[in-house]
Structures are given as structure tokens and as C-alpha cells.
Write a protein that binds this DNA or RNA. Structure first.
Lengths: 408, 408
DNA sequence: CAAATTTGTCAAGTTTCTTTACAAATGTCT
DNA sequence: AGACATTTGTAAAGAAACTTGACAAATTTG
């Protein structure tokens, strides 16, 4: 036994091209042993064993209990090592930074959040991120992977870590990665927050094990993420999934983008709130009007909650939105043929009438075989899903990150 | 020098994991030498050289002229060897089998076609395929890769080589691969003909070098193929791309599928022909009516040709179809953010007013940045593109196929 | 024409993976 | 219970693949 565990001179070499394959075999399947991995990847037991022991030394894998099945000596069950490495992810949403710390399996170990002025300027946004990351990472429960994953609003250049534009906030060219590098000396992997949420749901949530997944995030705006065989579809300029502005009706009302009949004007949180406010303005009764004059403007979430509680006006607004969403989802199902459609976002996660209407309308406008293939479900990771998505980006690179920490 | 070139005892071993990478480096780039490949893949010149000589022995690569650039000894320019190996692809379309023989670069060396009864039963269809393949492959101009690539109508199970269903023909579970295996003893790679066409355009046609491509095939029906980073998107049950039945207007006319307002009822060849016929029935004048009573029903292609020639009625029909196509393309661009949209199929390839209208309407219904990224162009491979797509499937596996022929 | 540079190949050396062998741990059959 | 078959994990020896270092060949530059 070594007296200096792990970090000593006899540290593993990490030269095999099969290391990543072995790791992902353990990650994506359950109940693998050294021998079963060897069979799976077409390697000898010796090689599999050697790689596994390297990964154990790196604290990426652990041996669990014995695998009793069939005859012969039982194998050692392998699993991701959740004891040591930690990933930190962040997401900005509604004027608030959310931070999560996860283990290698994406389990949330710790959360924190930091309020900044809603609709703030990019500088406030960036300062909040750096401050939050600095404080949050100081209290890590394990060894940190040396990169932060960040989910941001707007059109994101993932390669350069820049928010190219966030139209609803009026931002342009916000260089997030560069800022954090300067402020904290740490690397940032940036992604659009809804794409990050889709990634997280695909890896750890409602889309686990699904090969063709569509995530639809419904909040103030609407956008989607396409996960095909474990990979996120970015598109040419990172705007794949921006379904908020698909044209639903060429005769429809004018949208903020200048076009008519965008999905956004029918089904976003913004649209739901506006519609409810307009109906109340016309004198329609609703529980939403209780308490007289409001200080803050009505939100889509509030309307959805009221609808779930049975408010007639709210129900009407939500169901109309859900019907349009259902039609959009139908066309996405027809176009993509996914195995699963995951509905998320602040609006999508509310346990109300939205999902049933959406599902019924999606069925109405799709071919039966495509609809049956596509299970439509709510997201399973809750509110901080976007931050988990950031952590996912870090976890996807854990191998190279660990290698670089260990100073290969 | 060996007296038995290629096939003798000293045949190459094909064990390196870099063989495929070297081959695709030469394939997808131009002007590579042994040394430049070594740099590209991070290999030593020795290894690169060894692999290249193996590939030359296998007749997959050839040395061309010298590469004079910069100082130093010029490298040997490498290229795919077009002298030996041949791929055969087939496509069924409008009651006709088309066969193509290509070299490793997808160049068409020979074509043939075989008419079978239009709207024939599956048996006639299969007999025609086996007969055609048998005769066509007998006259090969080189050594055949031992597999045929076949583009077929309908929903195709690529793994098992079965047409699961072709609704417009009324077929179900047509086991193409099994039939050809029995009849000719040869393996078949089956694909939907429009997906095959998309594959071919991405590899050898208008989508060369494009990372995010959408192919839209417009014939009697409409369907699409999505090529993301060189890979075709199949979807969960191989129906990704079946955009003929996306809902364009919930108030629209009833479609054959039972729903309302499908793209198919507005913009397919079937729809264009029906619309033109209806207008003429109402007494509208058109060059299409010349020659009195017709024996065959009017086709969408005829209307498009008449529109290109300036016929007013035809122009109206084509432009209305193109406008709906443009709207559909707009939503696809918004959703996918492609670099290029390739318009193909019997209708899409006709050099008439369709493309301009489609492009204008697509621009009208997309965000500027997404539209600008997506160049909309006609297919570059002509009518037999589906058959070339079949050949593509074979070429994509050339390495393993050649290895198996050489009896590794 | 010499010097510098780059290519392609050979021989020798290193690393990685496999083969062969064996102890250890289990189920099965008698 | 005990012999036997089966499977796992590891170690030592061997094979295969890739790299290093060296060198002739082919070019540009000065």
C-alpha cells in the first residue's frame, strides 16, 4: 500500500484511448464489472482491469458490493465515485443567480442563490456571477473540477463563452468566460440556459436513457433543446431550439420580433400574463384580482397556479396557451420523431392543466405512430435544472479536467 | 515488388484505429500528404505513412502529383482511388427503379433504369429490384463493394432493411433486404429515398462541407432529411423528416391522413396538380389544357414546367405552394438553425419560380440572423440523387466492406 | 552552389494491449 | 458435503502498434 494515496509518483498514465469508453460504460449502464466491461468494449479482462484501477486511483470510479448473478466468481460492481469530485454549475434566471454543487452522478449536494437587480445591466449580471461563484466554491464539499458551467439567457457562443445577444434584456456581446477568467482565474463553459436544462434532463432527469429527446422550456419566453444520441444540437450559430419565434399563424397578432403569430405571443409566460390582465381589464372576474391593486405586474406563473387551483379565467388563458404549445409540439414530433418530449421551465413545471391540454392537442395534430413514440412528460429536476445543466458541461469533461488537476 | 499485387499473403493487417481517420482526412479535405495527415491527427509521420501504404494496397487511396508549397521536399498529394472500387445504389421512384454505379468519390460512372408498373404491388417492386441489381451489377466497371444501397419510399427500418409502411402505395412490412439476400445472396442497406437524397447532397452535392444541413424533397409528397455534423438524423422510429404532415393551418382543408391543413395538401406535387386541375375545371385558361382531353392525369411537374414557361394559372398554383413551403422552411430554419437548406425532388429541382417565392417567404417568417445563416439552394446532383444516396450508404462502409472482400 | 527545410522511410525502442496461466469465489450436481 | 464447472480478477510473458531518432531525397532560399 502506498503511503501517499493517489497523488504520488506512481500516478496513472491516462494514455489509453479506452479510458473514456470504460468510464462512460459504467456511467450509462448499471451493474458493470471489470469483466463485463471487457466483453462490452471488446477488450481483454486484463486491460479493462488496468484501466479500471487507474480510474479508481483518480477517484472517478469505486468498487461497490459484489455482483451475484449466474455461476462463477461474482464480479465487483463498479460505479461512479461520488465521494470526491465536485462540479459547480450556475444559472441566471429572473434576476437571480442559482448555484449548484453536484457529485459525478449529478446529485445536488448544495445550492445557493444570489439576487441581482432584475433586468440588470450586463455588468451587474457579471459581478453577481463572479461574486456568487467565488463564495459558493469556497465551501465545496470535495475536490472541485477546475471549471464552472454557466447557463445564461440569450444566444450563446459556447466556444468563446460569449452571450452574443439577449434581446429581451437588450444585451449584446457579454463576454462571460473572459470576465470570470480575469476575476477568478477559472475557466467557464457557457451555454444557453434552456439548452443547459435540456442537457441536464437528458443526462439525469426525465430523459435518462432516451436517444432522441426534445426539451421545451416555457418561462417568460419559450425555447427548446434537441438531444440526439446524447449530443446537444447547437445549429450553425447556436440558435437551434429557438422555437419561441416559429410562425403559428400568419394572420396572428404582431410579436415583439416584428413578425406575426409567433408561438411566443400565444403561449409564453409573457403572453399568458398579458392575456389574463387584458381579460381582467375587461371586467372578467378572477381570483387573481383579489387584494385590489397590485404593486408588481402579473406573472405567467401566477396565472398557471390560479388555473391549477380552478380559477376560470386563468384556466382559459392556460388552456389556450397549451393548445398552441400542443400544436407546436405536434409539428416538432412530426419533424423529429423523438422518443420523449420533456416540458420544463417555470411555467412548464407547474402541476396544472397545461400538460393534459398540450398532450391532447399534440395527439390531434400528429400521425399516430410518431405520437405514440413520443412520451410527453414534465421535467424531473425541478427549478435549478439550468444550473445542473451547467454542471453537466463540467461533468462531460471530467476526465480531461481531472487529468489536468493531477498534473499529467 | 510483389508479383501478386494486393491479394497475396503480405496483405495489410487493418488493425490500426487510425485507418478510418486517415481515410476520412483525405476524403473530406483536399491536398493532404502523409506528413500533413500525421500533423492533423497527431501521429508520427512513420505511422501515417504506414497506414497510407496499407490504404494504397487496398486500392482506397492513390498518390497523385507532387504538392509544391513552401520550402522543403514536396509531399505526395493523396486522393481517393477512383480506379478500382465501385458502389451500386438504387432508388425507386414513380414506378421506376434507377441504378447508379459510382467510384469512391461518388462520381456516377454508369446509370440504368427499369420500369415496373406504377403503384405496383410489393412483389413486382421487389422482383424489379433484384432483376435490375443483378443485370446492372453484371456490367460493373471495377471491383464491386459487396453491398447494395437502396432508397425506397415510405417509412424504412434501416437496421433490418424493411419498409415498415408506405401509406400512399398501401404497402406494409416489405422485407427488401431479406428478399435480395435470398435472390442474389447480396446484402442491402435500405434507406428512405428522401433521406438518401439528403445524404447524397450532403456528401457530394449542394451540402458539401456544410455542418448543419436540411434537405427538402418535393415530389408527389414532401419530406426532409436533417444532416447534423455529417450524420443523418433518423429519429426514434426512422420517421424524422416526415414534414409532409406538419400542420400549417388548423382551419385548412382535410388531408389524406385525416388531419387538417397539412403541408402536403398545400405544397406537394399532388396538391399543385390537383389545384391546377380544379382551376381548369372552373374554366380558367391555361397552356396545360392544350391538346384537349388528356389520357394521363396532370402531374405537379407539368404544372411547374408550365409555370416556368410563364403560364399564369400554373404560376399561381406554384407560387401558392412555394409560399407555404417557405413558411414551413422558415419554421425549420428557426428550429434547427441550419447552414444550408437544399431543395430537391422532382418538383424542387425544376428551374422555375418556386425557389424565389420560397426564399422570400422563408425570409419573411424567420429572424434575420437565422435566415442569413441558412443559404437556400437547389440540389446539385440531379434526378438520380436518391440512388447516389444508396451508393453513399455503401461508400460510408467501404473500409469494412473492402476488408471483408479481401478476406481479412 | 551551399544552407535550410520538409518529406518519406528504416531501424530501434517504448507503450499498450493480448495471451496464457492461475488463484479465488461462487453455483451445481451427485 | 464435496467434486466439478464456471467466472472473476490479476500477473507474467509475448505481440502489436506507435514513436523516436536518423538519414537520403527533393525542394526553396540566399
Amino acid at each position: 500500500m502506498s503511503t501517499h494515496p493517489g497523488n504520488d509518483a506512481a500516478s496513472p498514465s491516462l494514455e489509453s484511448e479506452y479510458i473514456a469508453e470504460v468510464l462512460s460504460a459504467v456511467e450509462n449502464r448499471a451493474g458493470e464489472s471489470r469483466a463485463s466491461i471487457a466483453r462490452l468494449l471488446g477488450l481483454s479482462r486484463t486491460t479493462s482491469s488496468k484501466i479500471v484501477s487507474q480510474l479508481i486511483d483518480l477517484k472517478l470510479l469505486v468498487e461497490k458490493n459484489l455482483l451475484r448473478e449466474g455461476r462463477g466468481r461474482p464480479g465487483m460492481l463498479l460505479d461512479l465515485d461520488t465521494s470526491t469530485w465536485r462540479a459547480i454549475g450556475a444559472e441566471y434566471h429572473s434576476g437571480r443567480w442559482t448555484f449548484v454543487e453536484t457529485d459525478l452522478k449529478g446529485n445536488i449536494l448544495r445550492t445557493s442563490s444570489l439576487k441581482v437587480a432584475r433586468g440588470a445591466d450586463p455588468d451587474t449580471f457579471l459581478d453577481g456571477l463572479a461574486k456568487g461563484l467565488g463564495e459558493f466554491s469556497a465551501n465545496a464539499t470535495g475536490e472541485l473540477l477546475p471549471t464552472f458551467g454557466v447557463g445564461a439567457p440569450g444566444l450563446v457562443d459556447c466556444d468563446r463563452g460569449v452571450i452574443l445577444r439577449a434581446d429581451d434584456l437588450g444585451w449584446k456581446n457579454v463576454r462571460v468566460a473572459e470576465f470570470v477568467k480575469k476575476k477568478l482565474g477559472a475557466k467557464v463553459l457557457l451555454i444557453n440556459r434552456n439548452r443547459g436544462a435540456g442537457l441536464a434532463e437528458a443526462r439525469f432527469g426525465a430523459g435518462r436513457g432516451v436517444h432522441q429527446m426534445v426539451y421545451i422550456g416555457i418561462g417568460t419566453g419559450i425555447s427548446a433543446a434537441f438531444m440526439i444520441d446524447g449530443k446537444l444540437v447547437h445549429g450553425s450559430l447556436y440558435s437551434a431550439g429557438e422555437i419561441g419565434h416559429i410562425a403559428m399563424d400568419t394572420q396572428g397578432p404582431v410579436c415583439g420580433c416584428g413578425k406575426r403569430g409567433c408561438l411566443h405571443v400565444y403561449a409564453s409566460g409573457w403572453a399568458i400574463a398579458r392575456r389574463a390582465a387584458a381579460l381582467m381589464e375587461q371586467g372578467r372576474e378572477s381570483s387573481l384580482a383579489a387584494g385590489g391593486k397590485r404593486s408588481e405586474p402579473l406573472t405567467g406563473e401566477e396565472v398557471c397556479v390560479a388555473a391549477a387551483a380552478g380559477d376560470g379565467l386563468a384556466l382559459e388563458c392556460v388552456q389556450d396557451a397549451a393548445a398552441k404549445l400542443g400544436l407546436a409540439v405536434a409539428n416538432i414530433i412530426t419533424t423529429f420523431n423523438p422518443d420523449k418530449v420533456v416540458i420544463g421551465g417555470p411555467i412548464g413545471l407547474i402541476n396544472g392543466p397545461l400538460l393534459d391540454t398540450l398532450r391532447a392537442e399534440a395527439e390531434r395534430w400528429t400521425m399516430p405512430h410518431a405520437f405514440q413514440a413520443a412520451k410527453i412528460e414534465r421535467g424531473a429536476l425541478g427549478e435549478s435544472v439550468g444550473a445542473i445543466g451547467g454542471a453537466c458541461l463540467v461533468l462531460d469533461r471530467k476526465l480531461s479536467l481531472v487529468a489536468s488537476v493531477r498534473g499529467r
